[in-house]
Every structure is written in C-alpha cells, then in structure tokens.
Nucleic acid binder design. Sequence first.
DNA 1: TGAATATTTGGACGATAGTACAAATATGGT
DNA 2: ACCATATTTGTACTATCGTCCAAATATTCA
Lengths: 248, 248
Amino acid sequence: MVRKPAKSGIKSGVKVASTRKPNMREAILAAAEELFSTYGFNAVSVRDIAQAAGANPGSVTYHFKTKDGLLLEIYRRHCGPMNRRRSELLAAARRVRDLQDRLEAIVRAYVLPAFTSGSDLAGGGTRFTRLRAIMSAEGNEVVRKIIAQTFDDTSHAFIDAIHESLPHIPRTDLVWRGHFLLGALYYTLVTPERVSRLSRGSADGTDAGHAIEELVRATVAALQAAPLDQGAPAPRKMAGANPGRALT
Amino acid sequence: MVRKPAKSGIKSGVKVASTRKPNMREAILAAAEELFSTYGFNAVSVRDIAQAAGANPGSVTYHFKTKDGLLLEIYRRHCGPMNRRRSELLAAARRVRDLQDRLEAIVRAYVLPAFTSGSDLAGGGTRFTRLRAIMSAEGNEVVRKIIAQTFDDTSHAFIDAIHESLPHIPRTDLVWRGHFLLGALYYTLVTPERVSRLSRGSADGTDAGHAIEELVRATVAALQAAPLDQGAPAPRKMAGANPGRALT
DNA sequence: TGAATATTTGGACGATAGTACAAATATGGT
DNA sequence: ACCATATTTGTACTATCGTCCAAATATTCA
C-alpha cells in the first residue's frame, strides 16, 4: 500500500489486551474488504490487512490460504445475499401494475441492494460494490469467473423484466443501457466527491439516498429512449479492446 | 504483472538488430500506455514496460526518472490534444440551431474524442481513456492533481453548454447525469466483451461506432429527464465513502 | 577526426511482496 | 487435569519491486 502515513496507536510488539478479537477470521475479512475497496487489490498487501485486523500475517494464510482465496471468500460472502435481495425486490417490482412505475421499481430493485448494507453484511452495501467496481477496472482473474457464474444470471433476469416493460425496444439496446447503468453506479461509488466539486457544493456526492434517486431517474429515462436505427452503424472496431477483460 | 505467460519471441540476452528502436523514449511511452491501460498502474512493473519496449529498465529511469513520472508524461501527452478537440467540437455544437440536435451534438462532442485516436496520438483514443478509467478506480495520487486542473474546466464548459440547452433543469441534476455519462463511458471501455456476452452475440461490445451511438442516445434521454423533486431526499450518508478518492 | 554529450547497459541496493512452517498458545470436550 | 485440535505467532525463504549508478556505447557537432 502507498498511503496511510500515520501508524495506529498500537506500539509494535506490545500486546493490547482490550483489543483481543473474538473472531479473528471475521476481523481479517472486514479489514481486507475495507482496504481492497479503497486502494484496490494490487495495492494492498497481506501484511497491510493483517495489521489493520490486528492479526499476524500468518493468520491470513492459515484462514484463507492465499491472497486470492481471501478475495474469493469476500465475494462468496456478499454475492449470495445481494443477489437474493435483488431477486426479492425484482419479484415485487414485477407485480407493479402501472408500466411506468414498474420500470422504475425494477431499476430500483437493481440499484438499491448495491447501496444498502442490509444487516451490515447481508446486502453487501457500498463497500462491496466499490470493491466490485475496482476489481472490474483492475481485471482480476479470480473475480472474472465468479462474476460470469453469479451475476450474469441476475443481469439476464433484469434485462428480461425490463424488456417486458418496454417490449418495443430491442433487447440489444436494453443490454447496452443496463451496461451504462452499472458503469454509472460503479463510478459514483468510486469517486463520490467529484460530484460535490463540480456542482460547487450544491450537491453532496456522499448522499447515498440522493445518488440513488438521481441514478434511477436518469436510467429510467435512458431505458425509455427510442432505439437506434437498425440501419448502418459505423463499422470501425475499437483499438486494442483486449479480449480477456473483466466484467461486473 | 500477473498475466502474459508467453514470452515474446525475443531470446534473452540476444541482440535483435532489426528491432532497434529509433526513438526509445517513444517506445517506452507506448508500451507503458498499453500495459497500464490493460492491467492497471500497480500491476505493471517498470521491468514489464522495459521488456515490452525492448529497452533496459534503466532507460526508463533515465527518461522519466520515476514510474510516477512516466505516468505523468503519458497524461501530458494526451490531455492537451483531447481537450482541444473537445473544445472544437463543443464550439461547433453550440452553433447548431435545433435545440434537440444541439444537445446531441454537445454530448457527441464530449464522447467522441474519448474513442477516436485522431492522428494516433493527438486525440488519445480508447487506450488513453481506458487508462483514465483504471486510474480513477485505483485512485492514483499523481493523477488526481492532473485531473483537477485539466478536466474540471472542460467538464464545466460542457455542463454549461448542456444547461443552455436545458435551462429548466437544475445544474445539480445535470452534473449528476454528466457524472453518469463518464462512468458509463469508462465502464464500456474497460469491459467491452461483457455486452457481447449478455446480448448473446447480437451486439458486439468491441464495435466502437455502435457503442458511441448507444451511449449518446441513452445520455441525451437521461439529460432530458424531468428533474427530481426539490422536496425531501433521503438523508443517509454513504458508509466509508473515503474522502481522498480520485476522479476522472 | 576528436571531444562533448546523450543514451543504453548490466548489475546492484534495500524494501517489500506472497507464502510456508515449526513452535507456541488457546480452546473445548471428557 | 489431560489430551486433541484449532489458532496464533515469529521467522524465514524466495521473488520481485522501484531506483540508483558506473561503465559501455551512440550520437552530435566543431
């Protein structure tokens, strides 16, 4: 890691009785989640995590075998609950009668679980979503597999639900717009203070509730836009759009 | 770096006469740009760059002093031309009579320079934009300063132009939607193959022209959406939205 | 050509990375 | 209390990191 000049108040080599962790495994997971989601996977060392958790570097190896294993466990922790919550909200949204309201409910069902932390572990919350954002940019190998087998199903379900509300728009366009939604969501969580700066203080980038509403409003409008002409799109390919890249 | 199992055809220690670089400095810059934009700043070592450029690790130090200096020089290379092109296109867009067309032209003026590579260096192209995307996620220290003093002006100019076309929408909402545009743009460049996969082959995520059109269409619609009620937004703050985070 | 300068080379430095492992300690059931 | 097991600790190993530097080589220009 590069940052964090200030050493925590713990003097090296001195035991701190009051800080004894009842479950070190959980403490390591929490510390890793926080550090990874802040600085990225590559920039954080196992020793950084151990120190932040008040543990010994060897403990990390003992509980999770490797650094990748630790990342894997974090994903395992959150993916299930988050997607389950999404499914619940999606099912409820599907029952909304008014088509306009239903579409908005669907989008909200997708966005909300990424922000709220549920029972502080269940949904995942902003920390985990921020982690996913960083991992998608860094293109981590381990994450790619988890995503493909965990999130693609959920994404399909949402696209399908949206397609039902907007049957006149080709699926392809809806896929693109869902893709844009995810990008906007990630970027909002990764750089919350930029909005504050650009709007000269009139908006607060750290106001999650407001961010959700803005995102939902914008996404619904984007989804409803007229589809592109099926005619003749530009043929040019992107230069070096490296094939093995990550996702979600 | 973690990937790239296959060693390039160059045998170690054997001179390759035909591959002699006339300008090693440029070769290093190109290699660094490609590697950084693919694997991120932290995951790529100076030695990786030197090898990819057919240079000696010491040469990198000689030309750019530090790894950060190399990154800085890459930004210097691209920021000027890209923002100049944006200004040109924005000026032209402002002259469009029809309000709807003008708005679309403005958005296109923002998006286009991020995709096209101009004279293969001038505009920057997808490689540089992909690099910016990754750097914003990794939260690099060096980049933060460059962004604040280089891109914020441009962003303001675009927000202002959009505001002129949509005077009934508060600036705050337009800032949010511009923010979402940038996130969508970044995410599209970072994970181009995901769209292909989710749309079951009917769309090609590496088709830059199509991506641009989809992005413009969606963004214009989002910008035109009715603003949020000024009423009572949710008060909750995002957990751990770490203050020192990057941007653009 | 020869001297001055610019660049490249190869090796080295200390720091830190991920991981492994034996010894020390804590824990829980009988 | 005792033993078996689970966990924590401290340390060490190897690999690689960014950076430095003196010598070797290329280049430029009077």
